[in-house]
Design a protein around this nucleic acid. Structure first.
Lengths: 270, 270
DNA sequence: CGTTAGGTTGAGCAATATCAAATTCGGTGG
DNA sequence: CCACCGAATTTGATATTGCTCAACCTAACG
């Protein structure tokens, strides 16, 4: 199936968090505990959380995509962020939080419980690298929200699509889910419209334009970036800079698990 | 001057935080320390923080308004949030953070240093009420960002203006800066355009429409909400619900123990 | 094979942007 | 008090982007 991926939940999390902040062996052990936790499956369109409902338990996506969504009158809805494998669901800073958005499955979805994560976030002294990685993941998420505001407020349809695709690919590649700019892409154009604040028809025309221009290839549930420079020029995407020490050591903490350095070049598409 | 307000920095913060989570006398003492800290003044348009620059020191606005802003090509800019007295500047969860947006003064601005705030945020055990208030303030801020995404993505010009005005009044009144829906409003229509993702001309026409309809009054640096119900119906503004114990006891300062006993019954499966 | 969800296309339209020219307003100096 | 200045607001005319509606096409799937 298009949504499946070979990484275990643990691998996903270790891959991603280790890029944010180096994890000790003990901290990886904490993540590995998650491997054995109960899993949950959801059908497309099922609702994992309702806006203003209490969040209980934090989960991570193992396979499939989901979204944070705000609903408005007249069947309008706005997706505020798309969630891919490795993203948290129901994870919050304070106890007894109410969800600020609904969370819905966009595809068949599998999640795993991760009760140790919110605990670790608080217990900073025992797992400093992990807490810090969680802080940075939160900061990154906020950064994407801000980019999305700029996108919706001030960018044209083409620019929105371009910058959003680059952001998505950036996120997927940090989890090892993108192969030199090509990745499984299970969203319908209607969902895309709700992400980008456009009509379905206009999304369609915009995508076709980008195909005609040779900037992307999109077919059969796969999206390939063919001309990254063109997309960057149009969308003005900049990878989020989160913390100054990352600047100093942007190669990242050397690790056995940095998937992105070991990509094999492969022809994109299907 | 239109931007002055009678509250001291301390009063502003105590007023606001005390609404988020009840503060002990000792915690108020921490806030009162801020009273004596160094102040800073800025002219309109000056830049307090640059995007991707390191944030050093956390401040609070004492008087005047500012904004978080993302800049794009072609002189476009998007304001992601407007900051009013009592709002933090440069406050972040993790150490050595890089600012995800620029911060600019929209009016003459006065801030005060508040080095104890980030410390208090971490030192949860010593000042639990204050840490919690900070958590909730952060959650509230995130909620406003999400609302802004929905606003820009899926609402019309009229709806955007309506919901934004209500949100603004909500924030001002929690600081004692709004008087039965009327408050000092120092923003130009051009700034408003950059907030709402519209052209200046269209902002102008939309405001006039709302004046003609008798929904608002806006003149000489003051904005008054005349028909709150009409604005709510148009904009679909909902005050953010942050935590379940606020639901249970939103009128008085609740005992911190009511929380877990008054949870609402269900929540959909996560 | 028929059904259906998703994708594509065309035509007309509405919302909003752009451009350009007043006009008003809040100071400021005489 | 008056005259003036620049910034902000307002207005009109026109252009454009993106939306709506409706039809049609295609591929996946039972």
């Amino acid at each position: 199936m298009a949504y499946s991926n070979p990484l275990s939940p643990t691998d996903l999390l270790v891959t991603r968090f280790n890029k944010l902040g180096p994890l000790s062996e003990q901290e990886r052990g904490v993540l590995r505990l998650i491997e054995g936790r109960p899993k949950h499956t959801y059908r497309p369109d099922s609702r994992l959380l309702r806006e203003s409902a209490e969040m209980r338990g934090s989960h991570f996506i193992v396979t499939g995509w989901a979204a944070h969504v705000r609903e408005l009158s007249n069947d309008r809805r706005q997706i505020t962020s798309v969630l891919v494998p490795g993203d948290p669901i129901g994870l919050a800073l304070q106890p007894q939080p109410l969800s600020p958005t609904s969370v819905v499955a966009l595809t068949p979805l599998r999640t795993v419980e991760a009760p140790e994560i919110p605990l670790a976030w608080r217990d900073r002294d025992r797992v400093p690298g992990l807490s810090r990685a969680l802080d940075l993941a939160a900061a990154e998420q906020e950064c994407f929200l801000l980019s999305h505001i700029a996108r919706l407020g001030r960018q044209t349809a083409h620019e929105r699509v371009a910058s959003w695709i680059l952001e998505l690919e950036y996120r997927l590649s940090s989890r090892g889910l993108s192969n030199s700019g090509a990745f499984a892409f299970p969203l319908t154009q209607e969902i895309l419209a709700d992400v980008l604040g456009l009509s379905v028809v206009h999304v369609n025309r915009t995508l076709q334009q980008m195909r005609r221009d040779g900037h992307i290839e999109l077919a059969r549930g796969r999206l390939a970036i063919l001309n990254r420079e063109a997309l960057r020029a149009a969308g003005e995407f900049k990878a989020p800079l989160l913390s100054s020490w990352r600047l100093a050591s942007s190669e990242g903490p050397p690790s056995e698990l940095t998937a992105s350095h070991q990509r094999t070049l492969r022809s994109p598409g299907v």
